[in-house]
Amino acid sequence: MTESPIDQSVFAELQDAMGSDFVEELVTTFLDEAPGILTELKRAAEMGEQNTLRRAAHSLKSNANIFGAHELAELTRQMEISGLEPEPSQIDILNAEFKRTATTLKDLLDG
């Protein structure tokens, strides 16, 4: 867990291709949008709404891949393909990984 949740080379490449200002806007948008998607995912898991759950996991996965958040991408990918309702503990793990990712992303923007 000491490893950075963000793959620095992917992030640097993104900044290089798109411009740092734009990446800042992109990260801010992600940090604004993702908590809503996580809430939706949790709700869908509780209600047993498979499609909504899959879509929310899919959405987070694609965003995680943009920033090189490999662990977050893997957790959401598992949820997307398994299609099963995740255990509450899995949701907790996902939330924790998102917090870790968000903190690192903020640090990267400030740094």
């Binding site: 798109m18 734009f22 949008e33 694609s62 943009i66």
Partner: peptide, 17 residues
């Protein structure tokens, strides 16, 4: 795209082209 981050990134990518 239903995801805002994806829309932003794709728009920017095609505009750069």
């Amino acid at each position: 795209d239903d995801n805002k981050v994806n829309r932003l990134l794709l728009s920017r990518s095609v505009e750069l082209l």
